[in-house]
């Protein structure tokens, strides 16, 4: 059985020893205690588990640990820098873009990648980019507002 002994997560090389067949989500949550990414549907249909793999948002619930080895993984825990939250995290708090919060880490990771590629997305682009992230509480309008707000903060030269 192939083993994975190292994962590059949030800029640090984490020593692990797991079966390559396990999902990236399970390794992050159960072995590395990074419980930000959530288990939702388990079939890449809800977006709760989204993390960045080499900068791109992917569903960690259907990504094998074997495929993740060698890639740079970023989870919601890795966004904060020197005690400063990412502007999108700030914006989520200011706007109150969550009720239960279960979809929030996935929404934020997908949103962070969007803002990196396009610092001024319009509403249609935000909706298109987040279409794979479901919010069962229905907080969509505030989530879109938070992404718009973070875009403004980033363009205004706020902490990145």
């Amino acid at each position: 059985m192939a083993r994975i002994t190292e994962l590059d997560v949030n800029g640090s090389r984490e020593k692990i020893d797991v079966d390559a067949e396990r999902t990236l989500l399970s390794v992050l949550r159960d072995d590395l205690d990074l419980t930000g990414a959530k288990y939702g549907c388990g079939e890449a249909r809800c977006g709760a588990c989204v993390v960045l793999m080499d900068g791109r948002p992917v569903p960690a619930c259907v990504t094998s640990a074997g495929s993740a080895a060698g890639a740079k993984i970023t989870t919601v825990e890795g966004l904060e820098q020197d005690g400063q939250l990412h502007p999108l995290q700030e914006a989520f708090l200011e706007v109150g873009a969550m009720q239960c919060g279960y979809c929030t880490p996935g929404m934020i990771m997908a949103g962070v990648a969007l803002l990196r590629d396009n610092p001024d997305p319009d509403e249609a682009e935000i909706v298109r980019t987040l279409e794979g992230n479901l919010c069962r509480c229905g907080a969509y309008p505030r989530i879109v507002a938070a992404v718009r707000r973070a875009a403004g903060m980033l363009r205004g030269g706020g902490a990145a």
Binding site: A44, G47, M53, R56, P57, V58, P59, T129, E131, G132
Partner: peptide, 9 residues
Amino acid sequence: SAMPQIRNA
């Protein structure tokens, strides 16, 4: 097709 995250993978 699908959604952005799936298209990435």
